[in-house]
Design a protein around this nucleic acid. Structure first.
Lengths: 242, 242
DNA sequence: ATGCATTTGTTCGTATGTATC
DNA sequence: AGATACATACGAACAAATGCA
């Protein structure tokens, strides 16, 4: 036997309305008082439901707002959150994360090589330009430009799932080791080498050679991160380099 | 300016305790009344915090339980939930989902070909045996055996992220089209062809030929699903077949 | 097997701070 | 600046469910 909690009914119903499109981002939910009348429950129950919906990133409520809670456009924030907890509680290793990035980025490049538009090529080119200019500025700007390049590739793959997962996993990896990279003694040399690698990848994408772009991108990421991965996990990464 | 809600403090603190490992799965949280004393807040606030933690899959609370909420082992349920939401609100196309599965499964096979143990080979073999026996039984059993095969491959890749994402995306895809597959007029022929393809993949994994296993697995999945993907999206799938 | 104590699920009423008009 | 409507938060209460003696 399974009793459905009162707040769960509300969550499911509003969730359904949002996901089916009858409630669009930017629209407002009824106020808490209206909701309690509509569902014939108390205020606390309504609030518990709203907390869950908020945790799932579907709505946002602010004190003093004359309207009710706001329906939000989808963001991968909740996905990001649960993947971060996965990384922490299951002790997801850095090796696994980097390996996953290699898989995603290589696939994105493979697809981008065949599906990219000229505008997207320009974006990638501009990102590499930013990377080059950033070497003198500092690691943060360099990293931001690097992210912009990979984002452009991911968008060019025309696969939202790849795009979002790339974004999520990358930010987790960077959260784990960005300070180590920033503090590397030879970081300028690393940056220049990374730029050269990115140029090779872009050339392959421009030429439409998907397999080459995929192989180069795997190698690029391997070279960039292998120093931070424990030696015992490196063979698993090399297994992707064929 | 950013005011931190009362319930957020509680969520963050308990979340931190769970993720850092000072609270293990199976252990109990203090009761709601103890928590309200401990954090000096009202019971409603405590409950809102517990609802959020429950939505994130970290704890579970049952009425009448003399102990407090139970700390749960990690499950990808929350991840599954947010990815399902993504699929619904962002109208993630079937093509994108299948494409993503092709990417993940191919990578899992590539890695499995190099890292698999003999026991894992036996598992895959047994799964194909189940598939063969299931043709006469029906689609549900066939699908379950098919899932078991792909799960064995994913485990053999030794990458939990690949394993979990494979599982999540697969269940979303199957949720979208399982009834169509089950009702296909020539489904027995499809099953036999799928079995033959799986045998080829397994042979490549057994031989340690990663690139071959990856290519075959992509082709297998393409053949199995392409009939359900709108014609306009098929070129993007074929882009993965080189 | 039966109560009993405890806990969660839910309700109601009230007070407070805040954003918008 | 004031009025209004809203969310935030508190506290007391009752019902239902659970575990234990």
């Amino acid at each position: 036997m399974r009793t459905v909690r009162a707040y769960e009914r509300i969550v499911e119903q509003i969730e359904e309305a949002v996901e089916s499109g009858s409630l669009h981002p930017g629209e407002r939910l009824p106020s808490e008082r209206e909701l309690m009348a509509q569902f014939a429950v108390s205020r606390s129950t309504v609030r518990e439901a709203l907390r869950v919906l908020q945790a799932r990133g579907l709505v946002r409520s602010r004190p003093g707002d004359p309207n009710g809670a706001e329906v939000l456009p989808f963001t991968p924030a909740a996905l990001h959150k649960s993947m971060t907890t996965l990384a922490r509680v299951d002790e997801l290793s850095l090796g696994e994360l980097v390996q996953f990035r290699m898989v995603l980025d290589a696939s994105a490049n493979l697809l981008a090589a065949r599906l990219r538009t000229d505008e997207q090529l320009d974006e990638m080119d501009a990102a590499i330009g930013r990377m080059r200019a950033a070497v003198a500025v500092g690691y943060d700007e360099f990293s931001a430009a690097d992210v912009a390049f990979h984002d452009a590739v991911a968008r060019a793959s025309r696969n939202k799932l790849i795009e979002i997962c790339t974004d999520v996993v990358r930010s987790i990896v960077l959260g784990l080791i960005s300070e180590k990279i920033a503090g590397a003694p030879d970081r300028q040399a690393l940056m220049w080498r990374s730029i050269r690698h990115h140029e090779e990848v872009l050339a392959a994408v421009r030429a439409g050679d998907g397999p080459l772009a995929a192989r180069l991108s795997r190698q690029t990421m391997y070279d960039y991160y292998v120093g931070y991965v424990p030696a015992g996990e490196r063979p698993a990464l090399r297994a992707l380099l064929e």
